[in-house]
Amino acid sequence: MTADSPNPAVEPDNVQAVVDSPADVDTGSSVGLDPTVDPDPGIDPSSSMWTSRLRRAWMSKLPPDELLPDRQPAYVASWIYVFGVLTLAAFLVILVTGLVLAFAGPAWYHTSSPGLFTNSLHFWSVQLFFVFMVVHLWGKFWMAAWRGRRAMTWITGVVAFLASIGTAFTGYLVQTNFDSQWISFEAKDGLNAVGIGAFFNVANLGQMLLLHACLLPLVVGVIAVWHVLLVRSRGVVPPIDTVDTEFSVTPADGASATEVRP
């Protein structure tokens, strides 16, 4: 069915027209004769169904060629652009090594060589993750990447950064070694002083373990996906004060020449 035939089957008068194209109808079925049944419930651009509305909203906000583009504006030509994807890659390595550690339990790596090696992979992928994320953040700051309705991209990025710090912090608390003993002893005072310690008890291994292995990675993951979808739907921010071919003589932002507004 083509996109310009709006739901013909709901009108009884149109039934014949529909049955005329036999490829659309199961042979031997009475579907085509029942005016209440749409013989081809395929793409209907004007359907009020919730599913259709969701698909239309998705397709208008983020069509496939924006979700997975094979081109970028010519200004996307710097190594600084690879640090976002490096951060995501490190996050994947953290998730995989973390799943192995979670499967075996927190005490495994103290007594097993493969366990210690897995813990080392987890440890170093976290160090890489933060190195890449900080360089990414610096890059986006100096590019003022929040311009052009991209403030939410910046905000989700900062939230992902803060949530990652919380996730790493709980990770240090569930090492079940001297370092976690000391960190929980020292960190409790700061958290207690502002009332957070009443609900978030750094000396409660069970609570910290579940937060670290379950809730917080989920939060970081969901925000990271949101962040990436925003980048894809808004596109990569153009250079500051840029002009493109359409307005090639005037400054882009005469109204905001001294500010870098979102």
Binding site: A77, S78, W79, I80, V82, F83, V131, V135, W138, G139
Partner: peptide, 18 residues
């Protein structure tokens, strides 16, 4: 060292030709 690595990576990312 970690902090220096971040600064060096940032500088290289900006200066190296893509």
């Amino acid at each position: 060292i970690v902090i220096l690595i971040m600064i060096v990576l940032f500088a290289l990312a900006i200066l190296l030709p893509f």
